[in-house]
Design a binder for these strands. Structure first.
Lengths: 189, 189
DNA sequence: ACCTGAACACCGTTCAAGT
DNA sequence: ACCTGAACACCGTTCAAGT
């Protein structure tokens, strides 16, 4: 019988921070943030809950920070090449919105976990895209923040299912989002 | 000895939904959402925690819904009269932002509690302001949503303390917010 | 009608112990 | 080094009981 070095005695993959975060994300996406529990997460990892603390010494705080970093900080695919700066920004905004909606359960964490570093890369990439499009540094900073605020706020309105008025007339959120982009980016291409 | 009808045998004001919500808001503002506990809320109200369920049968869910309604749904003072539609909207946006930041602890709830009704009045008042300013109905709907999304998203970025770049150069959030308003409202007065 | 007390099933986290 | 088991101090909520 040959030993598999990466598999431990009980024949399962060893724990790792990455595997913990990904499993936690599955729980949040599938069952909601409220059901993300150290004990339940341990079950999903086929491990006692206390084992998690060996990889995340700061416990649940660190776990939640990890979730935010995983969905909000990762770079957004630049989208279609070849258009002007306006198209590039539209592509960025659509991609970031899609990511936030894919993991709607972590949105409350993205919104309020005090973790300035998490969005630094995001803002930086946005400003870079703007500078490449020829915008001045000051204008780029303002536009980047305005756009990011809009994308996050719009995603929040969507997951809330904000009612339009008394009637429950359905809202076309995709169209709404694009229309808002036009307002902010001034219809420029 | 004369009986005070509104005061019970132990000489304290009787519980009411309003008093419960307000006390809960004080705890959230002062100590953060994580420390809002039925037991702690009971202490603050000088009552056993279980008494709260008599007024809020749905328990903590209903309590959190009440907090959202209290900070997000109440009308915003219209601000200075006499300017054009642009000034009215700027006043509305500044007022709403101030309210959200005053109760930053409930922002995660505003963002993601599934409670479409809570923001209906808010959106309606916004669209009314726009129509009075002479905007067409369609354009008003788009602008209202764009503006509301921006205000909420910007407030979220602020309470997160989103870092600008590697250096921790301080951000003038007031100026940023106004600059974003100019982008969205097109500098129109 | 309004509040209490005890109880239940769950939390996050610590700490000593196992391998 | 990595994981377990038992324990502690908390949760939200139910339910019968008090006044």
């Amino acid at each position: 019988m040959v030993r598999q070095p990466a598999i431990n005695a009980r024949n399962r993959a060893p724990l790792s921070t990455e595997r913990i975060i990904e499993t936690a994300l599955q729980i949040v996406d599938g069952q909601g943030l409220g059901r993300l529990t150290m004990r339940r997460l341990g079950d999903a990892l086929e491990v006692e809950a206390m084992a998690i603390y060996h990889h995340l010494p700061r416990g649940k705080e660190q776990l939640l920070d990890g979730l935010v970093a995983h969905v909000a900080a990762a770079p957004v695919s630049p989208g279609a090449r070849g258009g002007g700066a306006g198209d590039a920004l539209r592509g960025w905004a659509r991609g970031y919105r899609a990511r936030l909606l894919e993991h709607a359960g972590v949105l409350p964490l993205v919104v309020t976990r005090r973790n300035p570093a998490a969005l630094t890369e995001t803002v930086a990439s946005l400003r870079e895209a703007l500078r490449l499009g020829g915008a001045a540094e000051d204008a780029a900073a303002v536009t980047a923040h305005t756009l990011l605020g809009y994308v996050i706020g719009h995603a929040a309105l969507e997951v809330r299912g904000t009612a339009e008025d008394g009637a429950d007339r359905a809202v076309d959120w995709d169209a709404r989002f694009d229309a808002g982009l036009d307002v902010i980016l001034g219809g420029a291409r």
